[in-house]
């Protein structure tokens, strides 16, 4: 009886989304209430096999969190060919830089199998962060760490490339 009442009022989807978000490095330090708020502004989208999530050159305005399926990230080369950069598995995310600058996408994302993706739009996240500054600071902090890590990696690669004899 109690279980029936609980299942009428309680939504397991919210908990599922919270658990999913806790697994995303950008949001892993957020509290339960903040995760629930973040979950409430995500939009779930379904892509069938071969469908384009975004194309190189499109203006990016959303972070895509892969919930199920696989997304292939590729980049076009001179001569019309393209090269696959990586495959994004469930729990992974793409287009995080779109949350900072509305710059054109640097690669194309295509669903290689039927996939479900949560889209987190920049305007909605900015609104939430403005209304919850502490939460905003945490997300910005994680973004800072991510950027610093990538900068160090790029610097190391550049140094290695410079030191390697031709």
């Amino acid at each position: 009886m109690i279980e029936a009442i609980k299942s009428y009022f309680w939504d397991p989807e919210t908990e599922r989304r919270e658990t999913f978000l806790r697994g995303v490095p950008l949001f892993e330090r957020l509290g339960r209430r903040d995760l629930a708020r973040l979950a409430s502004i995500m939009t779930e989208c379904a892509y069938s096999e071969g469908e384009t999530v975004f194309r190189e050159g499109d203006v990016g305005r959303a972070l895509a969190l892969v919930c199920s399926g696989r997304i292939e990230i590729s980049r076009s080369l001179a001569g019309g060919k393209s090269v696959t950069l990586r495959l994004v598995e469930p729990g992974g995310y793409i287009g995080e830089m779109a949350l900072l600058d509305e710059a054109p996408r640097s690669a194309t994302a295509v669903a290689v199998e039927a996939s479900r993706v949560y889209l987190l739009h920049k305007a909605r996240l900015s609104g939430l962060m403005l209304s919850r500054p502490a939460m905003g600071m945490q997300i910005i902090g994680e973004f800072g760490k991510l950027l610093a890590k990538r900068f160090r990696e790029a610097e190391t690669k550049a140094l290695l490339a410079a030191e390697t004899p031709r």
């Binding site: 999530v53 975004f54 194309r55 889209l119």
Partner: peptide, 21 residues
């Protein structure tokens, strides 16, 4: 969103959220 396909989903959402904002 089902009416908008593939890469147009993000653009449709952008218009909707801009309207909402």
């Amino acid at each position: 969103l089902r009416l908008a396909s593939g890469r147009h989903i993000e653009k449709t959402l952008h218009v909707l959220w801009s309207l909402d904002e």
